[in-house]
């Protein structure tokens, strides 16, 4: 078996002490291989976002290990964690994903520029990433001049620019209408089919239908793990590769 792109090994995250102790995540283990699309579902407060924050190194587990492409995040400095996010991990949030003072291309270039890539090359890579999400025409638009769906596409382009292999998407369709949302999920699916690993946090079972696997969380713990649900909308959309 190939090495997973993301691996959570018995990870817990607690806040507070004693009586005020809150278990945001409780002994969760999860492995996501290259090309795999995993959906995480659960009610509010179940630990979905915490899981995503830990997976991207934005937060550190109270116990257990998070490993991304063989790197144990607990052993990395803040600087190395930032480098890992620039080179291996891409985030997509529900909304306000883009920096309003930067154009679409500049938003996509940002991780590459932060990584010291010369501006011309960064722009070239950004335009290629935008072309993959069919947004090359809007490269010089500012976020305020784009629709929500277009903004999410740009965010996905930024998440994958520079050959990053782990996409962490936190309710990326939450602020979109259903058609636009389906388009975004189709894009994520396509990225996985071409070798990336993706973790999608969602409330919506229809969206989970795009995933290879669904993990259910409640009160911070994994309560179930199932193969994908064959919901009619997903079948009708025909976007999923069986």
């Amino acid at each position: 078996m190939t090495m997973p792109v993301l691996e959570l090994r018995d990870v817990s995250r607690t806040h507070g002490h004693d009586d005020a102790l809150v278990r945001a995540l409780d002994h969760v283990s999860l492995a996501v291989a290259a090309g795999e699309f995993v959906a995480v579902m659960g009610p509010s407060g179940s630990g979905k976002s915490t899981l995503l924050n830990l997976a991207g190194g934005l937060d550190a587990p109270s116990s257990g290990d998070v490993v991304v492409e063989g790197n144990r995040l607990g052993g990395l400095t803040r600087s190395s964690l930032a480098q890992l996010r620039r080179r291996s991990i891409g985030y997509v949030f529900q909304n306000l994903n883009l920096i309003p003072s930067l154009t679409a291309a500049e938003n996509v270039m940002l991780p590459r520029e932060l990584d010291g890539v010369p501006i011309r090359r960064a722009r070239r890579e950004a335009l290629a990433a935008l072309a993959e999400v069919s947004m090359a025409d809007l490269a010089d638009r500012f976020p305020d001049d784009m629709s929500g769906g277009q903004q999410q596409r740009v965010a996905i382009a930024r998440a994958v620019v520079g050959d990053r292999r782990l996409i962490l998407a936190d309710e990326p369709t939450g602020a979109l209408d259903s058609n636009t949302g389906e388009g975004v999920l189709r894009l994520l699916r396509t990225r996985c089919d071409s070798g990336a690993a993706a973790v999608l946090v969602t409330h919506d079972a229809r969206h989970a239908g795009w995933a290879d696997r669904v993990v259910f969380l409640r009160d911070g713990a994994t309560i179930d793990e199932t193969p994908p649900l064959d919901v009619p909308e997903a079948l009708l959309a025909g976007g999923r590769t069986p």
Partner: peptide, 16 residues
């Protein structure tokens, strides 16, 4: 702040 947080998520260091 949100912009700064986004920069952090795409790999910005504290110095950035």
């Amino acid at each position: 702040r949100r912009d700064l947080a986004l920069i952090a998520t795409v790999g910005g260091r504290p110095a950035d």
